[in-house]
């Protein structure tokens, strides 16, 4: 089992490869709509937020989506499956520019850019949400998991509704 020590001893290329794999798995999980698996990318005491750029820049605390624990993530999944009423859609996320910033104790700070595309019935695929991930990653149960994932999106404006996570 990989431990925090083994990750901290990794060379730059090896760590990059591990992160590439993490983000690719994360995007594939959401792109494939395996939402039930999504909370497993996070530790129990986590923070997941989707935030418009204007709030982020002005230090305004409001998030478009705020999850303060893994339970909040499960609740989002529950609502996607059971309570939200919405038109069918496909959302595909592409993650790029993954760059580790550095370790702080047992936490790895990492940033990446993302673009999400949305396809609705009768419409051509459109750019839906573009922004950056500001993440804090830890080793849990032998694998890399998110302790914190903040998605700051550029446009401020959401094309109608943001239902599936980014």
């Amino acid at each position: 089992m990989d431990t925090i020590a083994s990750y901290r001893q990794m060379g730059k290329n090896e760590l990059r490869l591990a992160l590439e794999e993490l983000y690719a798995d994360y995007a594939a999980c959401l792109n494939d709509e395996r939402f039930e698996d999504w909370p497993d990318f996070f530790i129990e005491k986590c923070l997941y937020k989707i935030v418009p750029r204007e709030n982020f820049q002005r230090d305004l605390p409001l998030a478009t989506m705020l999850c303060e624990s893994r339970g909040y993530l499960l609740d989002r999944v529950q609502s996607i499956r059971k309570t939200h009423v919405f038109a069918p859609r496909v959302v595909r996320r592409l993650v790029s520019g993954i760059r580790p910033i550095g370790w702080q104790g047992d936490e790895l700070e990492c940033r990446a850019d993302y673009a999400a595309f949305e396809t609705l019935t009768d419409e051509f695929t459109r750019v839906f949400n573009v922004g950056r991930y500001l993440d804090r990653i830890v080793v849990d149960d032998g694998r890399l998991k998110f302790k914190e994932k903040v998605c700051v999106f550029d446009s401020n404006l959401v094309p109608n509704s943001l239902i599936y996570p980014l």
């Binding site: 418009p52 204007e54 709030n55 305004l60 605390p61 409001l62 998030a63 478009t64 401020n156 404006l157 959401v158 094309p159 109608n160 509704s161």
Partner: peptide, 8 residues
């Protein structure tokens, strides 16, 4: 003010 949210 706690923040803004905008949807089209």
């Amino acid at each position: 003010v706690l923040g803004y949210s905008r949807q089209l």
